[in-house]
């Protein structure tokens, strides 16, 4: 399994020269196995991922969406495989209470916002609604998803193939209060506690003994602001320890973090890494073979 980081920045794309080593594109990660091409999230990083797929003639693509905040979907209209006939793109993700995933993608490309509507693209698109907790297969890869703790709902993923496991846990507040929009019927404190424990257990299951866990580390501990649904590198290391992850990639960098600051963060958290865990920092162009 080969993992390629195409976009690692959170919130919005950052086109500044002092952020170019780690990269300014919003989230997109490629997961390649012998039998499948999977992308996770469609931030602006998906533009370059798409150019690469077209160049290599890949025409079967599975796109897993964590959630539909702008930084995770805004690159989709600029995904080159959309404009190749003979290409099939399956898009997996959670439906919202009032809108399906397909409606959310179609609305992004309505004529007032986009020159190309979804029904004008050349590729065949299939939208696949996921349950909040589900296992399914993409060719020979086993995929598992679980809802995360993020306002308006997000979904984490685990992908296993030939004994190797990868997890994507972004965006989420791993150890904060419950943040689940108005679609959750939890009203009493005990119901909320139950929900929170369910989400945390689900998250641990996704991350369990993964060879690489990509984790939301938007906040530094001193910046932590409850309500936004993001975690810190300290949270990521704690989850890695609880789940015996082999490697952790710090991910979804805050727009303000320059290359220099990210260098310092990387050095600091490498030195803090618990025994047996390797800490990486997500960087545009980084490839990790598992």
């Amino acid at each position: 399994m080969k993992v390629t980081f195409w976009g690692v920045r959170g919130s919005f794309p950052v086109a500044l020269s002092h952020c170019m080593r780690y990269g300014g594109n919003t989230p997109c990660i490629g997961i390649e196995t012998d039998t499948s091409t999977i992308l996770i999230d469609a931030g602006t990083g998906i533009r370059q991922a798409g150019n690469d797929l077209v160049e290599r003639g890949i025409d079967q693509i599975d796109l897993l969406i964590s959630h539909t905040h702008w930084d995770h979907v805004q690159g989709f209209p600029h995904f080159a495989p959309l404009y190749r006939s003979g290409t099939t793109i399956r898009i997996h993700g959670l439906n919202h209470k009032d809108h399906t995933l397909e409606q959310i993608f179609a609305a992004q490309q309505q004529p007032a916002f986009s020159a190309m509507t979804l029904d004008q693209v050349e590729a065949k698109l299939e939208f696949i609604a996921l349950e909040e907790e589900q296992k399914f297969s993409i060719a020979a890869a086993q995929v598992q998803c679980h809802r995360l703790n993020h306002p308006g709902m997000a979904c984490g993923y685990r992908i296993e193939h030939q004994g190797v496991a990868f997890s994507y846990i972004s965006d989420t507040d791993l150890y904060g209060e419950l943040l689940l929009g108005d679609d959750i019927p939890a009203s009493s404190e005990s119901e909320k506690e139950e929900w929170l424990e369910r989400l945390r257990q689900g998250t641990r299951n996704l991350a369990h003994r993964t060879n690489l866990m990509v984790c939301d580390t938007f906040f530094l501990p001193e910046e932590y602001d409850p309500g936004w649904g993001h975690s810190s590198p300290d949270d990521a290391l704690r989850l890695g320890q609880e789940t015996q992850a082999q490697r952790i990639a710090l991910f979804h960098h805050r727009p303000e973090r320059t290359d220099e600051v990210l260098d310092e963060l990387f050095a600091h958290y490498q030195s803090q890494a618990p025994d047996g865990i390797e800490v990486l920092i997500a960087k545009e162009g980084l490839e990790v073979t598992l």
Binding site: R9, F12, P13, V14, A15, L16, S17, C19, M20, G23, G24, N25, T44, R47, Q48, Q74, G75, P77, H78
Partner: peptide, 18 residues
């Protein structure tokens, strides 16, 4: 100054990607 989509890319820092 960039059209269509922000392009934070190494070879595009002079004219910019915003």
């Amino acid at each position: 100054t960039r059209g269509s989509i922000p392009t934070p890319s190494k070879g595009q820092t002079i004219y910019g990607g915003n």
